[in-house]
Simulated assay, not measured.
Amino acid sequence: MSRDTHPGAQCPHCRSHLALVPLSANGTTGPALPVVLKEEWQPPPVSEVLAVYAGRAVDTATAARGAARVRESLNRARAVAAQRRAAQKTARHRTRTTTPTPKSA
């Protein structure tokens, strides 16, 4: 991994990578609780995302409509993919069977 693309804390002046050293309870450096850096590109933990929905009642009618929409969307995507594959197959078959005939002088 190159120095420029390495994620983590950097010195704003010299751009060298910095290591975070955790402090113990008495303020000295040494073994303490590990520090876990959350990088910018990481998604939030699932528990945080699902916490928003905790305690909500499930509306079965809305859930059924949502599931039906998802199924319909997947079926449309499958049909479009099948049409695309069929068109590609026909195009490949046509190019193999039609070869140019030499013109006679």
Rank of each mutant, 00 (worst) to 15 (best):
1 M>L: 13
86 A>E: 12
67 A>V: 12
99 T>M: 06
101 T>R: 15
94 R>F: 12
19 A>Y: 07
24 S>C: 10
102 P>T: 00
76 R>G: 09
105 A>P: 06
45 P>D: 13
21 V>D: 07
99 T>D: 05
74 L>G: 05
12 P>E: 00
46 V>H: 05
5 T>K: 14
85 R>W: 02
23 L>W: 00
13 H>L: 11
101 T>W: 15
61 A>V: 09
81 A>C: 03
56 R>Q: 12
103 K>M: 07
98 T>A: 12
14 C>Q: 04
78 R>N: 12
26 N>F: 06
16 S>W: 01
68 A>C: 02
21 V>W: 06
3 R>N: 06
32 A>H: 10
35 V>Y: 07
42 Q>I: 03
31 P>D: 12
46 V>D: 05
75 N>Q: 15
78 R>M: 08
66 G>C: 07
18 L>I: 15
71 R>S: 14
27 G>M: 01
7 P>M: 06
98 T>L: 08
69 R>E: 12
14 C>F: 10
71 R>I: 11
27 G>D: 03
87 A>H: 13
46 V>N: 02
52 V>I: 13
53 Y>I: 02
96 R>I: 07
86 A>C: 05
73 S>N: 09
92 R>C: 00
36 V>L: 12
35 V>R: 04
49 V>T: 14
27 G>K: 01
78 R>D: 13
23 L>R: 13
88 Q>W: 06
102 P>R: 01
59 D>C: 05
67 A>I: 11
31 P>Y: 04
95 T>V: 09
11 C>V: 03
89 K>V: 00
85 R>G: 01
88 Q>G: 11
4 D>H: 15
4 D>R: 15
97 T>E: 10
26 N>L: 06
66 G>S: 11
44 P>F: 05
44 P>T: 00
20 L>E: 06
62 T>M: 09
1 M>D: 02
